[in-house]
Design a protein around this nucleic acid. Structure first.
Lengths: 208, 208, 208, 208
DNA sequence: AATGAATGAGCCTTCATTCAT
DNA sequence: GATGAATGAAGGCTCATTCAT
């Protein structure tokens, strides 16, 4: 009933498959099979497999309904609150139980970037990174050079990314129980926010 | 007189190749070509490609010479210094150009564990993680619960891991020039150490 | 108001493309692309690729303007001059860089006749062959039988045709340099004219 | 009973097929089908289709039994005789009733040279061309420059080649009957030899 | 009348694997 | 024990053609 033209159908099935298997291991035959179109359709609509992949990466933006909206705050919101919200959004995206294929795809691109990496960064990451920098701009003194702001931003992102990328390792190191007890999203938000604010002098450090 | 029989030769060349390209992208032909053996040799000696991979990963355990040694310090070394050394070692392992293939392979397995022996991977990290916890033990008050120490450790590791895992994204975000200018290993060591110490109250924060 | 309908446009671009690449190497897509029509247009207007080719060959008959004109001489012109002019015209047709596509197409058909109208080809040469025979008639004694005149004519044509048909081989045999230096059209005209006239007793032979 | 290994079998069937259909129109499937081997065999033995083609062109040398031997003469043979023999050999190769596929292949290469053209020239043409030049060297004065000898040689070759390349056109122009009556190999040998010798001053010209 | 979309057959190539020796 | 030869399944892609509109 919805947009069921071949092009859209291909794009819809391609994303999850690419996300699951990676670019190389995915066959256009499987994609076309699931999309109920002829193999030649990919060539017709996208030129070749690479272009289809790029398109799928771009499309990974808004999957089914709501676009990955940027956060917004009422005027007067403190940067501390904004930072916490941002960290929470980040962790939620990364760790949510039913990992959407978009996230999986992005992961792959991060670890083994393909030709589509730039597209991906521009479509998904640049804006969010900019927003994080804006928040840091409110926190850090004006004379901190840009590259230092970037490094701080990466320090924050890195803390969150770690739980996504090395989740298996985390479990092994601390055990299932501790994991269950202390690594829920909200707890991690608390920790990372506090750790980062303390590093910037806006929260009291762990050791006095 | 040394072991230059076909089986060993295959194993010797397989490691680096798998490390560089990953399991799937590696072809049996390339391995056999470099090992100067017939393509059939892999199947003959190892059954199939997967078994060869498993064997190669196992072999990655102890490099030809010394295993990745733990750091050691003379008595009286401050925890700040130890932490910095540890961070430097971590970043060096992750980012150095001339990474031995064993590390490369481990990295792959860490982020995307395959059928091949994840135990090996775990053994590989646990020691180092323990050492980091020891250092934090010297810094943090004794009443900080274990899980909080773990979280701090992950925050530190995460900051470093980020530059390994998202290196391409970093480049796209900040541009080649800033990258060249401000993201050399030593500069990152400075930043991460300072950021982390500040978070723990042992260094002055960026914002007063 | 002119005929810029799809059918005509296709026909117009098809000729040069077929001429340059031959029937098989030409794709319907390229033709339609250049003609700014849908790929389906060829099948719609011409049935299939072969019919389009046939039509294009037919159309090659009379170029947009004047047909390939026969040479003409003022009365009293010596047969030697006529022969040289004829040879020059022949070589020019065969070797000139800017050969109109009609000639190119004819050449193809001449050497490897396809299903498409070989009559056209024949009509194309007969006149010129007749003119060459007329010139020879002025040179050779009247009692030389017709078939001998034909053979002489073929000997002359053959010498010229060789440079068209085996041009690449010539280059490989004598090298680029000699080719550049001694196989320009005018030089070949000199040689072939002199060689042929000598064979007929109207010029001094190379060896005394 | 003879060499019926796959590689040889492929090579044996590839020649005639390539000759008949040309490089592009030939499918390795057809070749492998006729050779009773798997499609992958071409890749295994020759790398790819192009290399197989090149190999087939090279192999076009000695078809079934005797290699295409160079002519030899007893000492004291006159250059006129040698030239006639050479022309006869050339025409025989070109016009023999049951056109061997080798000839067909060479034809194709001449008109539309592929990547294998150089191979072909070196394997089939260079020696024979050299021999022809040797004969001309005995005939022409020593001070005739090399390039002029080449041109004379091409004039001789061209006359013969014409009957091969334009055979269809010849028939159309002179009719079946004259063709049957006056264009048998020996008659053409007579004509071309006489025409060429006359051009060089070693025979009496057609016109006194 | 004319087209954009879609098709299916077929092509060359790659790869892990097996087989005969 | 070890290998060169051979295989078959599969992959991406191209192309002329057809079909619904």
């Amino acid at each position: 009933m919805s947009e069921d033209d071949a092009r859209t159908r291909i794009l819809n099935v391609a994303g999850p498959i690419f996300a699951e298997k990676g670019f190389q291991a995915t066959t256009i035959r499987e994609i076309c099979g699931q999309a109920n179109v002829n193999v030649a359709a990919v060539n017709y609509h996208f030129g070749d497999k690479e272009h289809l992949y790029t398109e799928a990466v771009k499309r990974a933006h808004q999957p089914s309904g709501q676009p990955d909206e940027l956060l917004e705050w009422p005027p007067g919101t403190t940067p501390e609150t904004k930072l916490r919200d941002q960290i929470k959004a980040m962790l939620t995206r990364m760790l949510s139980e039913r990992t959407p294929w978009q996230r999986q795809l992005m992961n792959r691109e991060m670890l083994e970037p393909t030709f589509a990496c730039r597209e991906l960064v521009e479509a998904h990451i640049r804006d969010r990174f900019g927003q994080l920098l804006d928040i840091l701009g409110e926190i850090l003194p004006a004379d901190v050079p840009a590259y230092r702001c970037h490094q701080v931003a990466f320090s924050i992102v890195g803390q969150a990314l770690h739980y996504h990328v090395a989740s298996h390792v985390v479990t092994v190191l601390v055990g299932e129980e501790e994991r269950e007890a202390h690594y829920q999203i909200d707890q991690l938000v608390d920790h990372i926010t506090q750790f980062s604010l303390a590093a910037m002098g806006l929260a009291s450090p762990l050791a006095p």
